[in-house]
Computed example of a mutant assay.
Amino acid sequence: MLTAAALRAHLLAARLAGVVATPREASLRRYRLFAAGDPRVLIGIDPERSWGQRELIELMADRCGVSADPWQTSGQDVIDPERTLAALDAFAERLAAAARRRAPVLLGTGHPHRLLGFYGGLADALSAAGCTVLTPAQGRCVDITTRFGLRTHLLDYLRGVAFVRRPGVARPGGEPGAHTHSPLPVRLALAAAAEAGGPLPELVIGDHGWVCGAGQLGFEAIGLADTDDPAPFVGEAEGAVAVVVPLDDGARSRYYRPLTRYVLDRACLSP
């Protein structure tokens, strides 16, 4: 079993926590955009109240461990590994509860080239425990606004994990898919599941728009988020999102393998 101390050491060595690659400037910019109501940063969350930039800094300091000093405007963000571990434990509790009741689950990621393996391990374990891993709307088109304009993507699944990809585009020798923060893919998946007469997921696991979009619609949602993504943490603070794990979400995919092992050990879902 991977101990908390061993995982803490890995988080720091891989820079998933501690001093991370996310620049303070990038985080502050996204906090400003969130405070202004920019949908590119809200990513599916409809806040119950107004959040100013200073309040967001305080929230992210509390949930992630970033600097609470609004005058610190440069350098690298810092994530407290103890907060990451505590959130992973809460994440594991939700997995265990879903496995005990054999709940249908939906998994999706906006970072398939980084996080698909992490979620794929969870999907395999939940399926082995008797959970139905849902794959609604596979192959359907979803139009997502990007910095290059409106682009059509296809909703696809690999190892039970949803992601979007450009039609006919894949990464030879690597994990397929496009990076997106949009909540539209999860809305499409949930609508398709409802149209088909169910089942609907009792737990949604993901990041970015997947966790925010599902949580805003009232589904139990848990996931991962970086320090420059305030929306999931606002959703958690307001009760729309159940659990958010603070960590760097842009590291090499192999760095997340110990997190899969740790979470499954805690959830008693290890092979």
Results as ranks from 00 to 15, higher is better:
residue 227 T to E: 04
residue 63 R to P: 07
residue 260 T to K: 06
residue 65 G to K: 06
residue 185 P to D: 04
residue 109 T to D: 06
residue 67 S to Q: 04
residue 161 V to D: 01
residue 195 E to P: 00
residue 52 G to L: 03
residue 189 A to G: 02
residue 129 A to W: 08
residue 93 E to M: 04
residue 198 G to M: 11
residue 120 G to Y: 05
residue 140 R to D: 09
residue 158 L to V: 12
residue 209 G to Y: 08
residue 75 G to T: 11
residue 125 A to E: 00
residue 77 D to E: 15
residue 230 P to V: 07
residue 146 T to P: 12
residue 72 Q to Y: 01
residue 213 G to R: 06
residue 147 R to C: 12
residue 242 A to F: 01
residue 100 R to Y: 06
residue 102 R to H: 08
residue 45 I to A: 10
residue 213 G to L: 07
residue 122 L to Q: 04
residue 21 A to R: 15
residue 9 A to V: 10
residue 244 V to T: 10
residue 208 H to T: 02
residue 81 P to D: 00
residue 271 P to N: 14
residue 34 F to Y: 14
residue 95 L to F: 12
residue 73 T to S: 03
residue 136 P to K: 12
residue 154 L to E: 13
residue 84 T to G: 03
residue 128 A to Y: 10
residue 260 T to F: 10
residue 18 G to C: 11
residue 185 P to H: 07
residue 261 R to W: 07
residue 118 F to V: 04
residue 238 E to C: 11
residue 124 D to W: 11
residue 251 A to R: 15
residue 118 F to T: 01
residue 234 V to F: 09
residue 182 S to C: 03
residue 153 H to D: 04
residue 21 A to K: 13
residue 102 R to F: 03
residue 27 S to D: 06
residue 267 A to E: 01
residue 39 P to Q: 11
residue 169 V to E: 15
residue 254 R to D: 15
residue 94 R to T: 05
residue 101 R to W: 06
residue 261 R to Y: 00
residue 100 R to S: 13
residue 57 I to D: 00
residue 97 A to D: 13
residue 258 P to D: 01
residue 100 R to M: 08
residue 27 S to E: 13
residue 1 M to G: 14
residue 207 D to W: 10
residue 220 E to D: 15
residue 152 T to M: 09
residue 59 L to M: 11
residue 161 V to Y: 04
residue 149 G to M: 14
residue 217 L to V: 07
residue 213 G to M: 09
residue 245 V to H: 05
residue 229 D to A: 13
residue 50 S to P: 01
residue 148 F to D: 10
residue 62 D to H: 14
residue 163 F to W: 10
residue 242 A to N: 11
residue 221 A to H: 08
residue 59 L to S: 05
residue 21 A to N: 13
residue 248 D to V: 02
residue 16 L to W: 11
residue 13 A to C: 03
residue 27 S to F: 13
residue 169 V to I: 12
residue 85 L to H: 09
residue 90 A to P: 00
residue 140 R to F: 05
residue 63 R to K: 15
residue 189 A to V: 05
residue 140 R to N: 00
residue 267 A to Y: 02
residue 66 V to F: 12
residue 131 C to Y: 06
residue 80 D to P: 08
residue 204 V to R: 04
residue 92 A to Y: 00
residue 123 A to M: 11
residue 81 P to K: 08
residue 48 E to W: 03
residue 256 Y to A: 08
residue 146 T to M: 10
residue 193 A to I: 01
residue 110 G to D: 03
residue 127 S to P: 01
residue 207 D to S: 10
residue 50 S to G: 08
residue 135 T to V: 09
residue 5 A to V: 11
residue 87 A to G: 06
residue 256 Y to Q: 08
residue 175 E to C: 05
residue 80 D to L: 09
residue 51 W to K: 03
residue 124 D to I: 03
residue 52 G to H: 01
residue 237 A to P: 05
residue 269 L to H: 03
residue 55 E to G: 14
residue 243 V to E: 07
residue 87 A to T: 01
residue 203 L to Y: 04
residue 146 T to H: 07
residue 251 A to N: 12
residue 143 D to V: 13
residue 50 S to T: 15
residue 101 R to H: 06
residue 78 V to N: 00
residue 201 P to T: 13
residue 130 G to Y: 09
residue 87 A to V: 02
residue 132 T to I: 08
residue 90 A to L: 11
residue 198 G to N: 09
residue 58 E to D: 14
residue 140 R to H: 14
residue 252 R to M: 14
residue 235 G to E: 12
residue 97 A to V: 09
residue 93 E to R: 11
residue 101 R to K: 12
residue 63 R to C: 00
residue 271 P to K: 14
residue 244 V to H: 02
